[in-house]
Write a protein that binds this DNA or RNA. Structure first.
Lengths: 241, 241
DNA sequence: ACAAAAGTGTTAGGCCTACACCCATGA
DNA sequence: TCATGGGTGTAGGCCTAACACTTTTGT
C-alpha cells in the first residue's frame, strides 16, 4: 500500500478505484459477493460506513501495474478471494463528479465469474457475504448502477463466450447448465432444444462416476471437454437464443 | 481549464485522460481522425511532440462532470469537432503503469461515429487530419493499441446496434451501406442477400429526388426511416453475418 | 398415488446461402 | 464494344421452435 504523505501535482487529480462484481453460481441461483463497509483505511474521511458495497479499492498510482491488478489485490484484501487480474473482465468506468462525497473518485468496474462451491470456504465471512441476485440490499455510492451495468455486460458476453466453465463445478448436469443460462439471460428455454444446441458445440463430455443412472430422475452428469472448450473460446462463437 | 497550482493529496493519484477514436465514413472508406501533438499545455513535461496521436486530454477533476464530457471538451479544443458526450461510446481503460513517460496516466478510451461529409469542413486542418483505416501512421503512447481495441469494439457493436445512421450521409445508396458494413466487419457479402436483409428491418426508405433512374447504373437512393430506426435501436437487434 | 424432474425425436417453417442474367453507362 | 456497376428472384439446406409421453423418485 502507498505510504501516507504529501503528494503534490500541478493540476487536480482524481482518485481512481477498481471495483469488482463477483458473480457466483451454486447450481441453482446466481449470486453476487458484497462487503460491509467499515472504517476506510485510505481516504481522509469515511463514507457509507456499515452499508453494503462492491469489493474494491484505490489504485496505488505508484505501484499497481494496472487497474485490473489493483482490483485483484483489493479483492484479496477485502474478501479473501484470489482472482488473478487476467480473469477480471472490465465493464466500464463510472466518473460522475459527485459520486463519492469525499473527493473526486473515478472507478473502473470489473466483473469476475467464480465457482461458488469451490470458493465459498475461502470467503472471509467476517466482511463479505454472498447475495442472491434477486435479493440485493441497498448499496453504497452508485454501486447499484454498477451492478446493473455489469450484469447487462455479462448478459451480452454470454452470446460470444462460453461462460459455464468459470461458473459451474467441474461435474454438473444439463438442468444446471440450462438454469445458469436462464438466470443470466432471464428467459426460459425448452429443455430438448437447449440440450441439443449445447451438445452440438462438442464441448460437453458425459461422465460416468460409477453411480448407475437409476431412472430418469437422476440427471446425466457432464464435464467440459477442456481442449475443445478452450479452442471454442479462442475462436469465439455465436450463440443464438 | 483547471488553474495551475499546487494540489496536494495524502495518497498518490494518477492523472486521468479521455481519448477519442473518431470514425468517419466517406461512402468509400473508413477513416480515423488523428492529431499532431504539439507542446503540452497541461503536463509538466512534453512527450511525443510532433507525432500523431488520438485526440483527447486530461480530465479536470474539479470541473468536468464526467469522463465523457472531458472527452467531448478536449475533442472540440483539439480538432474543432463538436460531439456531445452522449454520443461517445466508452471502450475501455488503459492503465499500464509506464504508458506515459511523464507521470502515471490512466486513459478512458471512447469512440464516436460521424458523417464525414458533414464534418470534414469543421475539422481544424491545422492540427487534425483524417486517415484511411489501412494507412494509419505510427502513433504516440499506446494509441495504436487503443485504436485496435476501439475498432474491435465497433465490430462487436455493429451486431447489436444499427450504426449506419451515424456514419452515412442522409441520402445514401445500398452499395455504400454494404461497403460500410464490409469495411467494419472486414468481409465481403453477396449483394442480393445483403440488400434483402437490410430491407427486412424496415428502416430503409427509398427516396425519389426527381432524377429519374436512368437504367440500373444509377443506384437507388435511400434514407433511414428515423422513427423505425430509433425504435429498432432502443429495442436492440440481432444481426447475423 | 400423485406431483415433480428428467430423458428423448420429429416436424414445419423461416432464414441464410448460393447462384445467373440483364440493362445502362462510361471509357 | 467491352468492362463495370447495379438491379432482381429462386431453390435447397440448415437451424430453430414447437410440441407429448414415459420413467422414476420423493412426498
Amino acid at each position: 500500500m502507498a505510504k501516507k504523505g504529501q503528494y503534490v501535482y500541478e493540476y487536480p487529480h482524481p482518485a481512481v478505484t477498481a471495483d469488482c462484481v463477483v458473480f457466483g453460481y451454486d447450481g441453482k441461483e446466481l449470486k453476487v459477493l458484497l462487503i460491509k463497509r467499515g472504517k476506510e483505511k485510505e481516504a481522509s474521511t469515511t463514507a457509507y460506513v456499515g452499508e453494503w458495497a462492491l469489493p474494491g479499492g484505490f489504485l496505488d498510482a505508484d505501484s499497481d501495474a494496472n487497474v485490473a491488478f489493483a482490483a485483484s489485490r483489493e479483492l484479496k484484501e477485502e474478501t479473501g478471494l484470489t482472482i488473478p487480474a487476467g480473469d477480471l473482465h472490465e465493464v466500464a468506468s463510472f466518473s460522475e463528479i459527485n459520486r463519492d462525497p469525499r473527493e473526486r473518485v473515478i472507478t473502473i468496474a470489473h466483473y469476475a465469474l467464480v465457482k461458488l462451491s469451490e470458493v465459498k470456504a475461502a470467503t472471509d465471512a467476517e466482511r463479505a457475504e454472498w447475495f442472491s441476485w434477486d435479493a440485493i440490499p441497498a448499496l453504497a455510492f452508485d454501486h447499484d448502477k454498477i451492478l446493473r451495468v455489469a450484469f447487462s455486460r455479462l448478459k451480452q458476453d454470454i452470446h460470444f463466450q462460453p461462460v459455464g466453465f468459470e461458473l459451474l463445478p467441474e461435474i454438473f448436469t444439463m438442468p444446471q447448465l440450462q438454469n445458469l443460462y436462464e438466470s443470466i439471460l432471464e428467459v426460459k428455454f425448452d429443455r430438448r432444444n437447449f440440450a441439443n444446441k449445447m451438445k452440438h458445440f462438442g464441448i460437453l463430455e458425459e461422465v460416468d462416476d460409477g453411480t448407475p443412472r437409476r431412472g430418469t430422475r437422476t440427471p446425466i452428469k457432464y464435464r467440459f471437454h477442456k481442449e475443445n472448450y478452450d479452442r471454442l473460446k479462442r475462436k469465439g462463437f455465436q450463440l443464438e437464443f
